[in-house]
Amino acid sequence: MIPSPLTPLVRRITLHLADPARRPLPTITVHTRPTLRGWTFRAALLALVPLLLFTAAARTPGIPHSVTLTIAALATGLVVVHPTPTTAGGVIAVAAVLFWGFTSEPFDPWALAVALLAHLLARTTWWAAHVPPQGHAEIAALLTSWRRDLTVLAATALLGALAMLASGTTVQGAVLLAALAVVGLVLVALATDGSSRDDGRS
């Protein structure tokens, strides 16, 4: 048999792949409660981001499917590769724009589903930012504030119901009142006594 010029290369690659010295380092054994692997958060983001964007765009007429698909692909890639609260906030804003569609529709209860998915996306992104793919997170830690989240979502649903009831009526000066409320909220919320940290990665 005539040796091929690729034979030494193939042999080297085979030996390289079979080299036991290149196996990963041993792990530290830690006894914890049941955990989830860190990569599951990114896998969840892989499904959550398109779901949020497609849900937001589903009820808006006039958006080409290719545009939604492109935005979803870009946003998913960005959030999965760089899962930070900022990127998650950006994706939520994009979802809101898709939901809006620059149209003047009446109140759409579909917004509640979008709000639920947006909240879920923010939570999952926070976990993905704090647990690397090879890390672990206890399931009990994921569920530490489920009561608080349920309360927030219930309050959101209540607000949505009130907004839907009020959507058919016209109140004089409501826009000015709402604008003042937004400005007041900004002042209250951002008047912190300390500088905010980065995305949690020291």
Binding site: A56, G89, I92, A95, A96, F99, W100, F107, D108, P109, W110, A111, L112, V114, A115, L116, A118, H119, A122, V152, L153, A155, T156, L159, G160, A163
Partner: peptide, 9 residues
């Protein structure tokens, strides 16, 4: 309804 999306966060 757009405001509702940002309300939970």
């Amino acid at each position: 309804d757009i405001a509702l999306i940002g309300i939970p966060g």
